[in-house]
Amino acid sequence: MNAAEHLDLTFAALADPTRRAIVARLARGEASVQELAEPFDLSQPAISKHLKVLERAGLVSIGQDGQRRPRRLEPKRLQEAMSWLERHFEIWEQNYRRLDALLEEMKREASTQKRSRR
């Protein structure tokens, strides 16, 4: 799988609110399928289906802890997706920094006008 295909899988996996909530939960620490199912009011098979999508995208892995098979977040794919988004928006951020400077200028002008009106 190439980088673009990885990104496709990552973004498709994260396009669902339940799966984003699962990722957010796992960011706080590993959890079993049962533990994951509880707060979502979903059946275990339904959660397992979501987990499979996340696993296929490489966002979640299955650990081994005695009898338990806890799910863990794999931050690498998430970081790849984030840095891809950030690279794209670098140009936007350059614009926004220019806008910061323009707003400072506008604030100064506004306060000068106020003073001269007094």
Binding site: F11, A15, L85, E86, F89, W92, E93, Y96
Partner: peptide, 16 residues
Amino acid sequence: PLQASTPSDREVRVVR
């Protein structure tokens, strides 16, 4: 810096 996210597979959100 701005925050970017993809709320769904047709959307992109940028907050600053």
